[in-house]
Nucleic acid binder design. Structure first.
Lengths: 193, 193
DNA sequence: CCGAGATGGAACACTACTGTTCCATTTGTG
DNA sequence: CACAAATGGAACAGTAGTGTTCCATCTCGG
């Protein structure tokens, strides 16, 4: 009998339950980071006991969320093909993909503790790709005063703003996204191109 | 003997202690919102007992921080004289003043619960002034696609980004502020003016 | 200098959440 | 179907934070 625990591609019931718990956790924690495990379990439609079987401690759950976020960012960045075409278009593709992270975006942005694991310290390929893209902006007619490090901050902040705009003001997602992309283009100085 | 409790202009020792506690709370909570009252007390250089004398319950402390934030925003907005001069300059003055809120900015931005009292629901004069200013931007050559509500989100998000930029990347405050102002001018579409 | 006010610390009961165990029940898979 | 896996609920001990009381000490302000 081969041990199948801890395998990524866990199929069937276990994978589905695990996913449900993670999604519920993101939903609940993005609203209130101090929410109890009981609240998360009930949001997931799962007994608290079951949750503890998948994530023995609270920190295990948080770690898993962090890993999921890291992974989703990597996938989104890859899909955006940031090295292809004009920087302005690549930035638009990237923002488009990252915007879909939704609540996970809010959570990772708001909570300092979530993004503090060893995995977040080391620079990922996605980080490098984003830095390459944002560095390319100055060369292609962007505002020469704004360096890549700063534009990283702006990118995430504006994405956050867009998501908050839908939550707080009830603006439809597609419109918030449009505003977001337009604002990013302006902010980088690529607006007039 | 006249009761002097609950008077705003409490002078002397009590006022100083109260202020020290509030400042410590902002410092500590902006790093970790789940920090215990004991940590806040020790950061303030004050016994936990004393803290409970000023703020009987945790929620009282949070309410006080919220009120302080509201007040500081009002003062900053007033000082910025947002109705005077060109919109671009007024926006710069406003951002300059708000940037000084520092950790309070991070805290109010990150924690949803802090800004959820009845005081935050009602529109303040500062809110109206900011809305007036941001509405004025379109008229004065700003990007016509961006409405005032969205620009409010962008203003706060970029301020946050600037503050985070100093914290995370060790960028000096004056430089972060410069980037922030420049980015806001670009984002609103007033850059080329 | 002296008293009222302000403080700090110890001790206490209380609460909410956490993490664990055990068992009955349901689910899905071969 | 039959069996193994997965689940939910109850009960439990342990822990950390909260809010309170009491008292000794300190320090301003008159």
């Amino acid at each position: 009998m081969i041990e199948q625990r801890n395998v990524v591609a866990e199929t069937g019931v276990r994978a589905r339950t695990r996913k449900a718990i993670l999604e519920a956790a993101v939903t609940v924690l993005s609203k209130d980071f101090t929410a109890s495990l009981g609240e998360i379990a009930s949001e997931a439609g799962v007994g608290r006991t079951t949750m503890h079987r998948y994530f023995p401690e609270r920190s295990d759950l948080l770690t898993a969320i962090g890993a999921e976020a890291l992974d989703k960012v990597a996938v989104a960045t890859e899909k955006a093909r940031v090295d292809e075409g004009a920087a302005a278009d690549a930035l638009e593709r990237l923002a488009l993909e990252l915007f879909d992270l939704g609540d996970l975006l809010m959570l990772a942005f708001n909570d300092p503790g979530l993004t503090s694991g060893p995995d977040w310290e080391t620079e990922t390929e996605a980080d490098r790709a984003t830095a390459r893209l944002l560095g390319r902006i100055r060369v292609e007619g962007g505002d020469p005063e704004l360096d890549a490090d700063w534009l990283v901050q702006v990118l995430w902040a504006v994405l956050y703003a867009a998501w908050a705009h839908t939550k707080e003001n009830g603006v439809p997602k597609h419109q918030a996204l449009r505003l977001c992309l337009r604002t990013l283009r302006n902010a980088t100085g690529l607006g007039a191109v």
